[in-house]
Design a protein around this nucleic acid. Structure first.
Lengths: 210, 210
DNA sequence: ACTAGATGTAAACGTTTGCTGACTTAGTCA
DNA sequence: TGACTAAGTCAGCAAACGTTTACATCTAGT
């Protein structure tokens, strides 16, 4: 379903064969990571079994322990990946247009899209380490969003902007989950075109352009 | 930790003794329901064990099967209770002020408050029956919200109002979860006073008063 | 060609899970 | 009081879980 292209190179030393290797630790790792992100995002941590993930990835269960130490470790890796992707998405956008960019990306419903990453960020494993990572991602994201609308760390009176940015982030996550996990209609089958307008209204209301 | 007050009467037929009975099926049922709602809302379905719930309620595990058939049945009962509470909360408000009422209630963080009910509504058990109940509650809630702002079933062109109502509901759920489960700061410790303004902005932007 | 280490596999371990059936205790009424 | 039923207890089942172990196979370097 994911239609992974036969990624060639894995190790860092350049001169790899373009052919796909039959045994490739880096690719196997990535397959597991992708499968896990989808499962965790859609079904949650506890409802996902390591055997599910391994089957989705077409890989033996024991390799999860080998490459990620534990299910918990795999989950943390997923959170880190989601954080990276979130930062990459918002990072390549001019600061003052981040809200609109987010609004547009939330509409996307692909399995690896931003929606899926947002849904993942609200899943909890009960583990303290994972909670810390997630909180870090969320805090950084909301600060980035707030900074685009005038928030400066420590500056009195601008704390409210950070709060409003977190509300906007929370709203985005809620929309992502109701669309991709709960599948509430007509929200779930609304197109990007249907959603961009209302979402921009939402973000602009919380974080008025200055 | 829960410090349950010794609720006296339970069944409906009036002439109960004010004293708490030592064996009282209705009260035991309610204790289980309350404990389950908290656990399910905070930790999710799969991460909650029936033994956890029974311990919280101070009751034997086997009684879950007796009163609710199964863990699944208990979860469905929780969803129904959340739906009732949601309807009760929004039902006693003049139609055109429902958004503001919701905004105000989301701020509340009590274990049995609206926030907790909203968080429960995005927990999934994987069971089809529970999914149906949850979807029903969400659809009814969003329709009620949309109707207060001019949506009429089937009326062409007003479908967009329903979509916007669902976005507002999704936002509310997202805020509830980030506040009560994830505990993101400063969102989590913001007071009702801090939140009502931004939340009203949010709802009004999505569903402009007519 | 040969070997050493990396990669993948299969089976099983010990625990925890939801649930059940036989049992005991408390309340009710003749 | 003594039977009868509702309410609660207890021990344990079978299945599913995350993880580990021992083994097989591939790849790279010589």
């Amino acid at each position: 379903m994911t239609a992974e292209p036969p990624v060639p190179a894995t190790s860092s030393t350049a001169d790899e064969p373009a052919q796909r290797r039959r045994r490739d630790a880096a690719e196997t790792r990535q397959l597991l990571l992708d499968a896990a992100r989808q499962r965790f995002a859609r079904d949650g941590y506890a409802a996902t079994t390591v055997r599910d993930i391994a089957d989705d990835a077409g890989v033996n269960v024991a390799l999860i322990s080998r490459y990620f130490t534990s299910k918990e470790g795999l989950f943390e890796a997923c959170l880190r990946a989601a954080g990276d992707e979130l930062r990459r998405t918002t990072g390549q956008t001019p600061a003052d247009r981040v809200p609109e960019a987010i609004a547009r990306h939330i509409a996307d419903l692909g399995a690896t899209g931003l929606s899926s990453q947002l849904a993942l960020l609200l899943r909890s494993s009960g583990d303290a380490g994972a909670d810390e990572i997630r909180r870090g991602v969320l805090v950084r994201s909301s600060e980035q969003l707030a900074a685009a609308r005038g928030w400066r760390p420590g500056e009195p009176g601008s704390e409210q902007i950070l709060l409003r940015a977190q509300l906007a982030l929370a709203a985005g996550i809620g929309v992502a989950v109701l669309r991709s996990s709960i599948r509430l209609e007509p929200l779930s089958s609304a197109t990007e075109q249907d959603l961009v307008g209302p979402l921009r209204d939402l973000v602009d209301a919380l974080l008025p352009p200055r």
